[in-house]
Nucleic acid binder design. Structure first.
Length: 207
DNA sequence: CATTAACGGACTCACTCCCC
DNA sequence: GGGGAGTGAGTCCGTTAATG
């Protein structure tokens, strides 16, 4: 086997194992996993602030709101080592780092954006929810609506806007778990099948 | 040996996608 | 609208094979 081919195969194995490993840890340590989704005032972590941090941990959803209790999210984020996000690598975590510079990053970060792509599920969170048959009360809303809802709360004290924003964030973060369960079972199932297939082929060759 | 075409890897660049 | 990652098309360059 030439060097390039060997290098390529090793990369493939590492890729497969890393996906599998993330899912393995997810299912092995459910009490050490939190689902995280933030809402912000805009897209720039330098210019815009976090408005809501939604954390779903052991079946309980907790919203942390700017101006009320946002800093208390730190207590969860600093203690729970496995974080599950959607596109968090490029969005949520840079914002969190900017907000809490003293916070160490998660020991294990599962970015569902990468895992869903890896299994051929294309698109953003909302599109993937649809593909998996997941419905929501805040159907049709997007992140920019979340910005506008926050402005209504902050500028006019509109409590219903804040309630809708929290509901939107709750559905985002709870649906992360449903997607994670689906993707995780699929990846670990595939890994198990490919392992069994290899065993079967090897035993056939032995005959 | 010299030339040329064909091929493939490496690289760039523009574009798209994703989060709010 | 900000910014990072992925993707696909286009380009360049080195290697190889074919041919005179």
């Amino acid at each position: 086997m030439n060097t390039n081919l060997r290098f390529f195969l090793r990369e493939v194995v590492v890729q497969i194992l890393s996906k599998e490993k993330l899912c393995y840890y997810y299912f092995s340590y459910p009490d050490k996993v939190l689902f995280l989704d933030i809402e912000t005032e805009g897209l720039s972590k330098d210019r815009n602030d976090i408005t809501v941090i939604g954390i779903y941990h052991q079946g309980a959803y907790r919203p942390f709101i700017k101006g009320l209790n946002l800093h208390r999210a730190f207590e969860f984020l600093s203690v729970i080592p496995i974080w599950v996000t959607f596109n968090g690598e490029n969005f949520d975590i840079p914002f969190i780092k900017a907000k809490f510079p003293e916070l160490s990053t998660p020991h294990l970060h599962i970015d569902l954006f990468q895992l869903t792509r890896a299994i051929g599920l294309k698109g953003g969170l909302k599109r993937i929810e649809k593909a998996l048959g997941i419905t929501r009360k805040t159907e049709g809303m997007n992140g920019y609506d979340a910005v506008k809802l926050w402005r209504r709360w902050e500028d006019f004290g509109d409590k219903s806007a804040l309630r809708t924003l929290i509901l939107y964030n709750r559905e985002d973060v709870v649906n992360l778990k449903r997607i994670m369960e689906h993707v995780g079972r699929l990846i670990l199932g595939e890994a198990k099948n490919s392992f069994l297939l290899t065993l079967k082929q090897e035993s056939m060759e032995g005959l």
